[in-house]
Amino acid sequence: MERVFITGAAGYVGRNLARHFLENGVAVVAMVRSETSAERLKQLGAEIFVGDILHAEMAGAMSGCDGLVHAAADTDHGVATARQTAINVEGTRRVIAAARQASVRRVVHLSSDSVLADGSPLINVDETIPMPRRPAGHYSRTKAQAETIALSAATSDFAVIALRPRMVWGRDDTTGLRMLVDMAQLGKLAWIGGGTYLTSTTHIANLCHAVEYALRRGTSAEVYFVSDGAPVQFRAFVSALLETQGIAPPTKTVPRAIIRTMAVTGELLHTATAGRIAPPLTLQAFAASAIENTVNIRKAERDLAYRPIVSREEGLAELRALTFRGQ
């Protein structure tokens, strides 16, 4: 790879991917939606392309790129919206079509473990598990559609690989970690069912490493789960994340059955009232954080030679050090 195009480059994952490739001598064309979000990427040395994946003519900007990483997505875990459908489904269709037109050779589509979510625990799942007929929510549904669109475009001279990380975290996290801190400070964070179930996690450096390996070595039209390796107890991991920010973890717990009932009932009321009543919690959010979600990465280890390069302990130590330095 000499030149890579990244969609969603201003987001948490996108900007870390840009930094990763630039630090490894690969030129980056970073697609952002506005000039105001481009400054950090310019400082890293990326070439900037300003545009919206639903409207911009992307093929010209992709010209001369060896690879594409499609990281742009609407990750909201709330109720269904037309915007999420447009970005995740139609946006992916347009990005892939532009890449083919520009003769990009290899594409990594960033998918998610959520494509398998139906509200039941996902325990050590691998790439052979079929997508559910009734997804947990609109995010799962649209990400599954996007993954299918991307992979179906693969040809002998246009390689498309999908990566499914679980619970991305680490340095420079202005999304998930910020939300956890805010909820804890407001007293709105509680452990569902005690929080003792297991979860897989993916440090941002490990995800960037996996994306590079998938671009270079991935088999076209294949899917790979990636993570930090062995799973960890959800409560222990989230508590450790909060502690890196100087926040004491919560002690209160809520029965899982009550939370699931709230999610299902809230969504029914939302539908019955044509959206006038917003559910306090969706089944999508429940599926992501209230039950076990663990993935098997043997296929990535075998085919991509993928190995986590940052352990959880190292990632947590880095977060503590950055907090101590006020970064």
Rank of each mutant, 00 (worst) to 15 (best):
S120I: 05
V69G: 12
F158I: 09
I129K: 15
A73C: 12
T148S: 15
A146P: 02
A153Y: 08
S63D: 12
S140V: 08
L54Q: 08
S152H: 05
R105N: 13
G60E: 11
S140R: 00
L54M: 11
A154F: 09
C65Q: 02
A72V: 09
T128G: 07
E57H: 13
P121W: 10
V104L: 02
A72Y: 00
A80T: 10
T92H: 03
D113M: 10
V160D: 02
A159M: 08
M131N: 07
A71Y: 01
S120M: 13
L54K: 04
L151H: 08
D157T: 13
A102M: 12
D74H: 12
P135S: 07
I149L: 12
S120A: 15
I87H: 07
F158S: 01
D126C: 06
N124I: 04
A117P: 08
V104A: 04
H55C: 08
V89L: 07
R134L: 15
H138A: 14
L163I: 11
I53T: 12
K143L: 01
V79Y: 12
V104W: 06
T92L: 03
F158H: 07
T92R: 02
P165S: 13
V107E: 00
P121F: 05
S112N: 06
T92P: 01
R141S: 13
P121C: 11
E147I: 04
A73H: 00
I48G: 05
V108S: 01
D113R: 13
S111C: 04
S156P: 03
A97K: 09
R164I: 11
L68E: 00
A97D: 09
I96W: 06
K143M: 12
V89C: 01
